[in-house]
Every structure is written in structure tokens, then in C-alpha cells.
Design a protein around this nucleic acid. Structure first.
Length: 684
RNA sequence: GGCGGGGUAGCUCAGUUGGUUAGAGCGUCGGAUUCAUAACCCGGAGGUCACGAGUUCAACUCUCGUCCCCGCUACCA
């Protein structure tokens, strides 16, 4: 029975963690947001002797993996094998205690997700839509947006992807690209009709409203608010299939060459992995109302776990819904956003090599500084300080001085307890409060506060010891000395259990040092955990100081990343294919002067400009508002493409285009004559 | 622009249904101490609670407006 569920509404816990995508490693952002809190939660529940399974796995489908495979000339399976193994191994070594860590490329998962789809299909839960998509006739395959490159219609970058131009950051549709090209064969793709199935999320709006907005007001504000925002913006049908050959095949006739869209199959991975763990007994973990389902995720996943997956489960009909989705915000690194592509991260597998047997320090720092209510910053300096002045100075030091004194005065045996004085009594009373205090906090997902309370017990120990001064009383009052060492040792024993969810490796070490077996959470809080005469082992340091040099090594590593990012940051795009003079001559580019400029209401980037082109005065809408203040550009002479077909933007006819140069940081600059000339002068 | 989250001591965060001098840890300064990994213990300094207005006997806490940070979303010819 947990502290917050006195009526025993729930008999068991099913705890899942977001499936890491198997095209890269796991970094501190993932750990702080998802894996560390989830592991703490599960370890705690186990100590409470609750029935709990902890389910994880790798997400191995989706287009990015196929692209990476192609780039390296290996199969997608090779890619996911590589990263799945790295991730699985580093989780193990880091002490994330999954009951199962499997993968979505498993047979079980293919069958489970395929059956899930079929059930929804047969029950008429999908709608079908036919649309036009690019098709590569040489490779005989439909092309995902990512598989198509072409010229960005906006900035002219020739290597824009079908979903996004990385040069200007614009998100695109593949059909927007000029000169589209298949990255599979290099062929020019053609449009072809294709059929897909959609989950009409809009039909679940009433259900979601009631389930979340009415019945789960206790969810974290960031999660609840985000859901509310999504629901109120209106939900759209979402495609659940794609034309791709890497993934779970769509299990119906006429769906050759189609797979389940990765967002559809990935959350079903939680179910598949449970089945793999408990083939005969999995259903009670997913279909019994007395099971508490909890998803640990990062904030980027809120929509999938609170809106989409529950709608899928609801559509299926026989599943329970998550009871809570404690999503964390993001962790930054030394002031900058963590970024895989810029290699701005502390990778778990590298940490484990650089700091062998120091898992608990990272666990501690990431928990103490977890982005529970807002984005937070990880710095190596803070890592060092928290280790040196909290783990070493408060926790490690208390344990060490107690054990050393026990050996010094009592030959390593627990001394007997005599008549208690007021301080003894007060201390014993306070010890009693910790299991429930920490338990309550953990059950309500307040991990950093729970950790803080655990440390407070060590603070209590230090204070108790200092006030008793056994190093003085040993010469004058042996009974006092016996009491103060006995009670200090009882605090050590309590800590040995209470710290286990947070600092499992050190807890184990401490348990060995004082010769006890792990107890359950309800046995803790007492001051008779160690009997008189109980033998304890020699003192061994739980934590060691981290010197400046080690921290410098890490910050230098990051500095290097920053340097090399700077150098590699900008690569001029390749020259486009040759054109004839006539092609160029078709473009009518003129000098013009900005007469008026104002922001287009309800937009962030758009300015409405009035330009004197020498030919006429015309209106042009331009997406430059982030870089220019309207008043300051009036009078500026610019280059204007005047014979571009007009286009309506936000209800305004835009007649032409202002030519801009884009710097590597995305900043836009006017392309202007370097001396004033007449308006309407041809640029050639 | 719309929606959501956040803006409290140098740093990281708590602040219950609005109610006495706004709290904690770390950092810093001073003291005490020596069992302990220059650690522990005691004490001090440090905040017009983003800004402005309003409701109220009383606002960090409620209402409105403004600014800043993060995310989602629209827009970028």
C-alpha cells in the first residue's frame, strides 16, 4: 500500500519510459527528463513491495534510420542493432533497472502492432484517404519527404529536404520543391496517387476533454496546459500509415509497400515489450482497472502520450488509460540547448567511460537539478559543486565519520543504547518521519524535493554527531558516547535504504559496510535497525572529491565542440546546374525604394512594404520582420524581382519579391546597390 | 499573432484556501570546532517576490495590461 493510495485503488504499477530513437545515443537531457526519475520511482515502488513492471525499449522504425543506413551503406537493421546495443548497455551500466528493455524491430512487436492495427481497421476506426505523393519510378517506391531534395522555393538552397529547408529553417511540403530529386536513385520523382489510413482524432475530442480536462486536473501544469492547448486548437485526423519499406507492414490487402507510421507503432511497443516479458500474464498489466499505468516522457512527447496514444487505446476498447504522464521540461547544457546534430551534449556512454563507477554522482546531479517545472541548465561547475559540497561533504562525510568513530571507540561493533536524553529522543522521533515524507513526494513525482529530504536526514546526522561530541565524551562519559554512536549508526542504516532509489550503487556499498540486507520501505524509520554488538566493516569512502582538472577536461571537450561547430557551421551550397542567358534574362530585377513598411497583423515574420520600383508603386509582403524594424528601413534602396507572379499572403496581394542575402545564423540582409541609383534600374 | 508553461536572494528552487518581520540548499562573509575527504556545527549579510494599474482592512498569492525566457502553432515567394 502506498502513502497516497490508502484505499488501495491500484494493485500494481505499469511504468513505461519513452522509447529512445535508435539512431543515436542517450544523453543527459534524456536521463534527467525521463530515465532517472522513472528509475527512482520504480526502485521506490519495489522497496514498498508493490507489484511493478518497468518497461522500456528502443524505437527502431521511421525514416531517419533508413536515411542514416543509406548514407553509411548499411541496412537499417545494422543501424538499429548498433544503437540498440549501445543504449541498452549504457542503461544497464547506469543502473536503470528495467524488467525488460526490448525493441520495436522484434517479432513480438511486429505481431502486436499489426494486430492492433487490424482490430482498429476491422472495427471501422480509421478513415481512408487518397492523396498524391512523389514516387520514384526507378527505385519503384514512394518517397518520404525526407527522401526528396530540391531547390527551396524560399531561399534557393538547392539541397532542401522535402519536409524542411535546413538553410532557411522553413518547413516545406515535398511538392513545394523546385526540381525535386529522389535521393534513392537520383531520378526525378513523379506524382502518383496513394491510399492511406487516418485516425480521426477529432472524433475523440469529447472523450479527451472529459478524461484529461475534467478528470485529471492533478497532472503537472505543463502537461495539463499543453493538452488543453492541443484540444482547444482542434484535432485533425492523423495518418497512421506511410509508403516505406522499413517498419511494420500494414496487415491488410492492397497495402503492399506500406508500413505503420512510426508514431503509431512506437507506443504499442510498450505493450509488445510487456508481452515479451510476460507472454501469459501481460493482459492484467494493460487491461485491468486496478493497474496504474504511468508514462515517463519529455515534453516533446506530451501530445503522443496524452492525446494520440490514449485515443488509440480508447479506439481499441479493451485497454486502460495512463493514470499520469509526468513529463519533464528540457535540460540545457552550459547555457545552450542540447543538440544531437551539433554534438552539444554529454553522452551517457562517454560519461560512463570518463567517470567510471561514478553513476551515482550523475544520477544525483540530474535529479537535484531536474527540469521538473521549467527548463534547467546543466553545468560541469555545478556538477562538481554538488558532488564536493553535498555528496562528499554532507552524505559521505557523515557516514565516514560515524564508521570511523565506531571503529576507533568500539572495535567496529554497534555500542549499546543507554537511557535516552532529550536530544536522543528528538532525533529518534525525527528519523521516523522520513520514509513517509520521502515516499509521499516520490509518489507525487516531486523527485528533487524527495532527494533533498533524503539529504536532510544526513544533515540531521551531522548535526546530532557534532552536538554530542563523542570525541570529547569518550574521555568522560562512555554511556553518552555509546548512545551517540549507536543512534548515528541507526541513521546510517536508515540512509542505506532511503538513498537506494536515488543512489543505488552507493546504497549497496553502504549496506555492505554496515553489514545489512536491504529492507523494505516500511521497516525503515526505526532506530533499532542495528542491534548491539552487530559488527560493521571498515570505513570506505562513498564519494570522492572531484578536482578542477577533471572539470576542465570536460569543459574543454565542450569548447572544442563549439569551435569545430563554428568552423563547420557554414558550407556554401553547391553551384546549381548551368542555365542559358535567356533563362536569366527572364527574371526582371530592378532597384526600388521602400516607401512604407508596416507589420502584417497576427504574424511574426511578415512585413507589408510599399515599394517605388520606378515602374510603379506596389505592395510586396516579405518575411523579414524578425530582422528589421519597419520605421528604420523606409528609404532603403533594395533589389526587387518585379515579374514574379503575384501571390496572396494573409489576405494581401504581394507583387514581387525583395532579394535578400541570408547569413549563416539566419540573419537577413538587403541586397542593395552600393551607391544610390535611380529606381527601376535593371539589375543584370 | 494565437495557445500553454515560466519569470521569488549571486545560483537552483519552495511558498498550502490572499493574513504577523517572504523560506530552503548551495555560494559568500564571520565565529566555533577537530571524529571526519579544508569536511561538519553556529551565526550574519543578501529579495520594491519581472513591471504597471486594480479588487481588498490585507496580495508573491486574485483581476487586467505590459515586458522577458521556453514550447506548440500560423505566417516566410
Amino acid at each position: 500500500m502506498t502513502y497516497t493510495d490508502k484505499e488501495k485503488k491500484f494493485k500494481r504499477f505499469n511504468v513505461t519510459t519513452a522509447l529512445p530513437y535508435a539512431n543515436g545515443g542517450v544523453h543527459i537531457g534524456h536521463l534527467a527528463g525521463v530515465y532517472v526519475p522513472a528509475d527512482i520511482y520504480v526502485r521506490y515502488l519495489r522497496l514498498m513491495q508493490e507489484d511493478v513492471i518497468f518497461v522500456g525499449g528502443s524505437d527502431e522504425h521511421g525514416v531517419p534510420i533508413t536515411i542514416k543506413a543509406k548514407k553509411e551503406g548499411v541496412t537499417p537493421q545494422d543501424i538499429v542493432d548498433r544503437y540498440h546495443n549501445i543504449i541498452k548497455k549504457s542503461f544497464e551500466e547506469f543502473g536503470i533497472t528495467y524488467d525488460i528493455y526490448s525493441r520495436t524491430s522484434s517479432q513480438t512487436h511486429h505481431k502486436t502492432s499489426s494486430d492492433f492495427f487490424k482490430k482498429l481497421f476491422n472495427d471501422g476506426k480509421f478513415i481512408e484517404k487518397v492523396s498524391e505523393q512523389y514516387y520514384d519510378e526507378e527505385a519503384k517506391a514512394f518517397l518520404a519527404d525526407r527522401y526528396i531534395t530540391g531547390t527551396c522555393p524560399h531561399c534557393g538552397n538547392e539541397k532542401a529536404y522535402g519536409d524542411q529547408c535546413e538553410a532557411c529553417g522553413t518547413s516545406l511540403n515535398a511538392t513545394d520543391l523546385i526540381n525535386p530529386q529522389s535521393t534513392l536513385s537520383g531520378a526525378k520523382p513523379v506524382l502518383r496517387e496513394t491510399k492511406h489510413w487516418f485516425l480521426p482524432l477529432n472524433d475523440y475530442e469529447a472523450f479527451l476533454r472529459e478524461w484529461i480536462l475534467e478528470n485529471h486536473k492533478e497532472w503537472k501544469p505543463n502537461v495539463y496546459g499543453q493538452c488543453k492547448s492541443w484540444i482547444e486548437q482542434g484535432l485533425q485526423p492523423r495518418a497512421v500509415t506511410r509508403d516505406l519499406d522499413w517498419g511494420v507492414k500494414v496487415p491488410i490487402e492492397g497495402a503492399e509497400g506500406k508500413v505503420l507510421y512510426v508514431w503509431f507503432d512506437a507506443p504499442i511497443g510498450y505493450i509488445s515489450n510487456t508481452i515479451e516479458l510476460l507472454p501469459d500474464d501481460w493482459e492484467k498489466w494493460w487491461k485491468d482497472k486496478e493497474t496504474k499505468l504511468v508514462h515517463f516522457i519529455g515534453k516533446d512527447n506530451i501530445v503522443f502520450h496524452c492525446i494520440v496514444f490514449p485515443s488509440m487505446l480508447k479506439a481499441e476498447g479493451s485497454y486502460i488509460l495512463p493514470e499520469n504522464v509526468p513529463a519533464n521540461e528540457f535540460l540545457n547544457l552550459e547555457g545552450d540547448k542540447i543538440s544531437t546534430s551539433r554534438n552539444w551534449a554529454v553522452w551517457l556512454d562517454e560519461y560512463l567511460v570518463d567517470f567510471p563507477n561514478k553513476q551515482d554522482i550523475l544520477r544525483y546531479v540530474l535529479c537535484a537539478n531536474a527540469p521538473e517545472s521549467k527548463d534547467n541548465d546543466f553545468t560541469w561547475k555545478d556538477f562538481q559543486t554538488r558532488n564536493n559540497s553535498e555528496l562528499v561533504a554532507i552524505l559521505g562525510n557523515f557516514i565516514n565519520r560515524t564508521i570511523v568513530l565506531t571503529h576507533k571507540y568500539f572495535e567496529g561493533k554497534v555500542p549499546k543504547l543507554n537511557a535516552l536524553n532529550e536530544l536522543d529522543k528528538a532525533t529518534i522521533e525525527e528519523i521516523k518521519t522520513y520514509p513517509q515524507k520521502i515516499g509521499n513526494l516520490l509518489e507525487t513525482f516531486k523527485f528533487r524535493e524527495a532527494l533533498f529530504e533524503m539529504m536532510n536526514l544526513a544533515r540531521l546526522g551531522n548535526k546530532y554527531l557534532t552536538e554530542n561530541e563523542p570525541w570529547k565524551t569518550v574521555k568522560t562519559d562512555i554511556e553518552r558516547t555509546e548512545n551517540s554512536i549507536n543512534i548515528s549508526l541507526q541513521i546510517c542504516a536508515n540512509l542505506a535504504i532511503l538513498m537506494e532509489p536515488f543512489l543505488p550503487f552507493s546504497a549497496k556499498k553502504l549496506q555492505k559496510m554496515i553489514n545489512i540486507n536491504p529492507l523494505n520501505w516500511f521497516e525503515v524509520g526505526n532506530s533499532d535497525l542495528l542491534n548491539e554488538g552487530h559488527k560493521i566493516e571498515e570505513a570506505e569512502l562513498l564519494f570522492e572529491r572531484i578536482e578542477d582538472s577533471e572539470i576542465e577536461k570536460q569543459t574543454n571537450k565542450l569548447l572544442q565542440t563549439k569551435e569545430s561547430n563554428k568552423e563547420n557551421n557554414y558550407k556554401a551550397s553547391e553551384q546549381k546546374e548551368n542555365i542559358q542567358f535567356d533563362d536569366f534574362a527572364k527574371m526582371d530585377i530592378r532597384t526600388g525604394t521602400i516607401l512604407e513598411a508596416e507589420k502584417v497583423p497576427k504574424t511574426k515574420k511578415l512585413l507589408k512594404l510599399k515599394i517605388d520600383t520606378g515602374i510603379d508603386q506596389r505592395t510586396i509582403v516579405s518575411g523579414i520582420a524578425e530582422y528589421f524594424e519597419p520605421e528604420k528601413i523606409i528609404g532603403t534602396q533594395v533589389s526587387v524581382l518585379v515579374n514574379l507572379a503575384p501571390k496572396e499572403l494573409k489576405g494581401i496581394q504581394s507583387q514581387g519579391m525583395i532579394l535578400m542575402a541570408e547569413d549563416k545564423d539566419g540573419k537577413l540582409v538587403f541586397v542593395s546597390p552600393n551607391e544610390k541609383v535611380v529606381n527601376g534600374a535593371e539589375i543584370r
